[in-house]
Design a protein around this nucleic acid. Structure first.
Lengths: 198, 198
DNA sequence: ACCTGAACACCGTTCAAGT
DNA sequence: ACCTGAACACCGTTCAAGT
């Protein structure tokens, strides 16, 4: 009577997990629910994942890949100005965060990097495009001289900060007044580009 | 035979919860464990909190107060320069995040703000000091003209971004090379102050 | 404002025995 | 590479009945 799942159960489980994540959030995500939705027994996931944490890590890795794609796409449709490209990339990042808030949460939980070294690799890779953007901006003379890695980190921190503050408490934090989040990104990155000190 | 807990059980529970949070992280935090450590029955917490979420919200509120105190203390021992005070405040924020990583995680989960309006108030209040700093920096001519609220948001996003990226994956993300986190804060805020564009 | 104790539905994880 | 089914220890939450 056994109904076998023929095919790629691993990916099926990940897809369902991501689906459930979007519907009910990380708190409500359970292995047993994922298995049930996939139509397999509650032990079946253990054929592909060591434990629940491993599932979350896999979801996080996929998240970094999706984020990179979104950012890349946003840059590629933008005119050849480093400033404009940086703004486009930043908006894409924040849009991703808002549309997939639970996913972002899984990506940036504190994770044992010794146990999952690949996650560090994937997350670093997602920074590469931003790093290239900074370097070409410098070569083109649009950005100042200075350590490009430091500049990349600063930009990432700013964008990530806007993103995470935007999803905490459903925008109340950053948006007590009536700005759109896109405005907040543009203004914040603008300040970073042009400076605050006089 | 009943052993009653005479005194402020509510605060005892919160203190123990914070303790456990630091020891084992948010995942391992359970109401039953808190109650046990407090020496009360597993139902006792329900006398003071509607549910587990309410406990987490109370911890978050306390976190914002502690964070404000740290930031305030850092500013007050710093010379009368807006730039220096901003750097001191930023370092204090990031230090708080690293020392109390799990606490920060609880503070910035996405929370139903309709249900816990006070949390929005407390979190906004923790921004007040930063807002004052920006305004006096402008009055003093150290900072540029511009909407002070927008500037405050940008600074907060930057500092918060550095803080959260620092605790994700135990510093691998922001620190593949050998910088200290204090350096990253100083450099990032420096870029925000002085600008990246040429 | 607490206590005990039972109960419920739900977890993650590990078996043993199957196909 | 799956299945069933049982089991374990642990959850959050809700009772009922006590002091």
């Amino acid at each position: 009577m056994a109904k076998y799942h023929h095919g790629d159960l691993r990916n099926t489980l990940l897809a369902i997990a991501t689906e459930l994540l979007g519907e009910e959030g990380i708190q409500a995500l359970s292995l047993r629910k994922i298995a049930q939705r996939a139509g397999v027994s509650h032990n079946a996931p253990y054929m592909h994942f060591a434990d629940k944490e491993a599932v979350l890590v896999a979801i996080a890795e996929e998240g970094f890949r999706l984020l990179s794609l979104d950012v890349e796409a946003a840059i590629s449709v933008t005119e050849n100005s480093s400033r404009q490209q940086l703004l486009a990339a930043s908006k894409a990042y924040v849009r991703f965060a808002i549309e997939r808030a639970a996913h972002l949460q899984v990506m940036f939980r504190s994770i044992d990097v010794e146990k999952y070294p690949n996650l560090a690799v994937v997350s670093q890779a997602s920074l590469r495009r931003l790093s290239e953007l900074v370097k070409s901006g410098r070569e083109r003379g649009e950005f100042r001289a200075g350590d490009p890695d430091e500049m990349t980190k600063a930009i990432w921190a700013m964008v990530h900060g806007v993103a995470t503050l935007s999803i905490a408490y459903q925008p109340t934090l950053l948006l007590p007044d009536r700005n759109s989040i896109e405005d907040v990104v543009v203004v914040s990155i603008g300040h970073l580009l042009d400076g605050i000190a006089s």
